[in-house]
Design a protein around this nucleic acid. Sequence first.
DNA 1: CATGAATGAGTTTTCATTCAT
DNA 2: TATGAATGAAAACTCATTCAT
Lengths: 198, 198, 198, 198
Amino acid sequence: MSNQRAATRRNKRDLILEKAIEVFAQKGSQQTTVADIAKKAKIAQGTVYVYFSSKEELLNECMQQIIGTEIESIIEATKDIPDTMDRLFSFFEQHIALVKAKPYIARFLTMEARQNDDFFALYPDYNPLKRYLDYVKDLGRKAIAEKRIRDLDLDAFAYLIVGVMDLAMTQWLVYKDLDIASMAASIRDILKYGVNEK
Amino acid sequence: MSNQRAATRRNKRDLILEKAIEVFAQKGSQQTTVADIAKKAKIAQGTVYVYFSSKEELLNECMQQIIGTEIESIIEATKDIPDTMDRLFSFFEQHIALVKAKPYIARFLTMEARQNDDFFALYPDYNPLKRYLDYVKDLGRKAIAEKRIRDLDLDAFAYLIVGVMDLAMTQWLVYKDLDIASMAASIRDILKYGVNEK
Amino acid sequence: MSNQRAATRRNKRDLILEKAIEVFAQKGSQQTTVADIAKKAKIAQGTVYVYFSSKEELLNECMQQIIGTEIESIIEATKDIPDTMDRLFSFFEQHIALVKAKPYIARFLTMEARQNDDFFALYPDYNPLKRYLDYVKDLGRKAIAEKRIRDLDLDAFAYLIVGVMDLAMTQWLVYKDLDIASMAASIRDILKYGVNEK
Amino acid sequence: MSNQRAATRRNKRDLILEKAIEVFAQKGSQQTTVADIAKKAKIAQGTVYVYFSSKEELLNECMQQIIGTEIESIIEATKDIPDTMDRLFSFFEQHIALVKAKPYIARFLTMEARQNDDFFALYPDYNPLKRYLDYVKDLGRKAIAEKRIRDLDLDAFAYLIVGVMDLAMTQWLVYKDLDIASMAASIRDILKYGVNEK
DNA sequence: CATGAATGAGTTTTCATTCAT
DNA sequence: TATGAATGAAAACTCATTCAT
């Protein structure tokens, strides 16, 4: 009984989170009303407030859900790839796959997370872009140590990788005809050999 | 007198635009009220509606102002630099300078323009990121023709340049201690020679 | 088993009443939510509705509980004091003792009972202030008959006694440093001899 | 023009205050909705928020209005009566007259002012009962100095006067058939000569 | 009986927009 | 043109009450 109840409670909370992420992503957090979310989840507006104390809190929980779950799962999934550069581009590819599978997550990563000041005031380490940058810098550091890449400015390196990833993602959301996968190969090529004539 | 009036009208309209951009950029367009803008411009709320039919229209005018004026002026300013790569990085540097001088413009480029769907529905070519990408692709095409860079995927090239620029700008807005100028040199170096050991 | 059940029912009902009085008194009936009461009684919200049909009814039951139990018990306790004036001031003292022991009762007497119109519409005789006034008038009548006090306006007499009692109580609730006990002696003195120079 | 505008503004604010006092007094502050007040004042709900930042603030302004205006005007009106006891009972009578003329004020004095903790936290000296008590104590002190009354406990004296006044007022609100004016004479008699047989 | 999740009507508050001056 | 008071529709949030378990 307790299990059943707990399960129900967990399920409804998760249901609200899931639908909220979809609606927030579709319309943006400001344009989304609690009524929209309730409608999408087929529950009464008041029910949202049984599980979340305010629309604000619900939005933050959505972000933590995405960052804590999705981003970390990508990082986790790539941790066994031995070659650092392969690992880096596998990370890139997985991120693209995530965006393609759950485009609303991209909206959170690029939009909400960038502009929700309250959220970053509370959880500065949850800035998803910063999380990505740190991860890439770390990978870069190892690649240098392993002499797989030359000794370069790690910040510049990380910003190049994450920047191109983020932009490609953003543009893909607007112009769906962008072939990110094939672009990834070209990006890898440019980063590897540089733009100079050999 | 007619001149006087026209001048006044132009001036007041521009005053509202100027202040609106500042406030929109500071608080985000959703959080900004017409009252905020009127207060900043030291005029009555009603006056805003003498020059703009709605808050929506005012926002769109702000974006056109930025894109049409600021962005184009950067592109214009670099047009006389003969070496394509120099021109590209001059463009990069000018963009950084613009963001540093008028940080609220960056907010528009990264945030508002990305999320204001109505605006893009009306003016797809005014997507400032797309404008940047097209410009860089064009530069890249010339550089290849001039054999200054090797024959590479222009999209990948443009996304790398604009992506790193946009990200650096975004992060600088949050963490002001980022030294973008010095990073630019490193980025140029990486792009030029690639990450591989020589 | 039937006894057991009845006892349980009685006990839980009384538990809710007891806790409801405390919470109502603490926060005022309007500010109190059914959830507050349920929490204080450590039961589920729904359980309140097993014993009371509405929050309104619960509030009325609380008032009857106080008037029927607490007030009558004071009147009862003083009934064997032969001297009418002693009895009157014993009544006064017991009331003070009650307020000090259970301050939340004072809140009911002064606040809720005065403002809950519905309650008085249903039970006009349960106005606790009226109950007090009637009791004091009755005592006064006897004291006059016994020639312990002079023949005076009974209403004025009762209003003086109950009025000063009620006000002292009210102010004591706000400013706890009021020494009601010592004031009672002075009040008795003034009422006895009047304010005139002898 | 400026005068006209300022007058309009002042008038509307005062109109809202006036109507709010009436409705608050009639239904109690908790039962009163902003819609009720707006309806009574024949304005839109939003207009209330042009002049008051919240319902809470409006309530507090109402109380200050009553305490600052009505109570002080009574105290002011009696200040030229030379005999202290006459002055005291003139004060009493004026208070009764006020309650009869504007019964809703009585509601504020006895109900809202007693229970609105927030208000007293901000303005402890605006407790209307305390204001009354202080005034009567002051009068009593002078009466003693002038040897018009004997040297008695000022607190007990003030509590008797204000207590009976407040209670009479309260009961009159419920049972309108109470003849307060005639009672006042009896009260004066009892207080003057005491209850003892001479 | 007891529960507590779910409900939805009702309330406060915001703010783009209008309009008389 | 310029004003700013007034509007009212829409949104967030509360909470007494119900009901399936």
